[in-house]
Simulated assay, not measured.
Amino acid sequence: MSRALVINSGSSSVKYRLFTGDDPVATGLVERIGEPGGDAADHQQALAHLLDQLDLTDLAVVGHRVVHGGLRFSEPIVIDDEVVAGIEELVPLAPLHNPANLAGIAATRALLPAVPQVAVFDTAFHRTLPPAAATYAIDTEVARRYGIHRYGFHGTSHAYVARGTAALLGRPLAELNLITLHLGNGASACAVAGGRSVATSMGLTPLEGLVMGTRSGDVDPAVVAQLHRTAGMSVAEIDELLNQRSGLRGLSGHNDMRALLAARADGDPAAQLAFDVYCHRITSYVGAYYAQLGRLDAVTFTAGVGEHAAPVREAALANLHRLGIIVDPARNAAVSTHARLISPDDAPVQVCVVPTDEEREIASQARSLLPTADSPVS
């Protein structure tokens, strides 16, 4: 059976997972690339090292996570020089992510020149957003010239979890209206109608939307001008504040939900406020997306916080029972790593927990571009 290798290349790390068919057979991480005492001097050396450790017999395809596909890339694509140039053109929209993704692509293409390489974009799932959901209300010529647009992120996770929810409910995805909540250190909400993204909380960048571990999520845009005028902060300083020193960390000192919940249980008022702000924002988005969809079949939680933080799930949906969204306390509190319902059987809207697997989704999308699903490259 053919194999698929998934590469997630960051600025100083490379995560990988190797699949035989649908089964993961190896996974790992190379860290501190280019740093003193790190695992490798550069991405080429890091990937050369990890490829030497893997059995790549019958390797059919390499799938690369690419954060930003802009308006150009709406689906996975086999990588060639033209695609690389297109990803490079999008670097201004993702200056921290796309260059690292490109470094991984360049190294793997050089090391495995006979194996097809496929780019899978975080933004691609959201290319189905209707214009009303994707357009910011600013001068249209300025928006066009500088690419100001709601792109959305976590697309591979939302796509995977939407299909997982349909499987859990035993219903065709095409018939379902869903709200998927990817709650990790980064967090986003997505309204999915018939398998298509129609609204999502992240926007031009992954900063907008829900409260996150270190990111603020939604703030009044005038905050930027106010801090510049009154505090003398530069744009770079404000950007660092909103991305690295805000969210749960900014409110409580904790960016890990487990630590926050422990501090809350100990009576820390800052932790309680952070928890309340976090859940309030989720409630607001679920209510808004319910209104946009008009009819809702399920709300699904996923990612580290969504899958494991029962208090968050309960509090985020506590005020929505009149909309038919009800959490069963016993089901919600039960510890499990499997997809499951946490609402009563007769609830008008089902509440689900579906573990995400972005690497598996990338492998699946990469394989979908092969001539036949199990055709290895020799």
Results as ranks from 00 to 15, higher is better:
81 D>S: 14
220 D>N: 12
161 V>P: 08
136 Y>E: 13
21 G>K: 09
21 G>L: 10
349 V>W: 05
376 P>H: 03
202 M>N: 11
311 P>D: 12
195 G>Q: 13
360 R>S: 14
334 A>D: 10
356 T>R: 09
10 G>F: 01
231 A>D: 15
252 S>K: 11
152 G>K: 07
220 D>R: 09
372 T>P: 01
50 L>D: 02
30 V>P: 02
131 P>G: 11
359 E>L: 12
5 L>E: 02
161 V>S: 09
65 R>C: 06
47 L>R: 01
236 A>G: 10
355 P>R: 12
142 V>C: 06
340 R>E: 02
67 V>S: 03
230 T>F: 08
350 Q>G: 00
313 R>I: 00
367 R>A: 13
282 I>Y: 06
1 M>P: 11
184 G>Y: 09
129 L>T: 12
347 A>M: 11
286 V>F: 00
221 P>R: 13
69 G>L: 02
267 G>H: 01
176 L>N: 02
344 P>I: 14
30 V>L: 06
24 P>C: 01
299 V>R: 01
169 L>S: 03
266 D>M: 13
105 I>H: 01
33 I>E: 10
214 T>E: 06
30 V>H: 05
279 C>F: 03
220 D>P: 06
236 A>K: 05
241 L>Q: 06
176 L>D: 10
124 A>S: 15
289 Y>S: 04
315 A>H: 15
339 A>N: 07
168 L>A: 14
26 A>M: 02
229 R>G: 06
23 D>T: 15
48 A>T: 13
267 G>S: 10
220 D>M: 03
149 H>V: 15
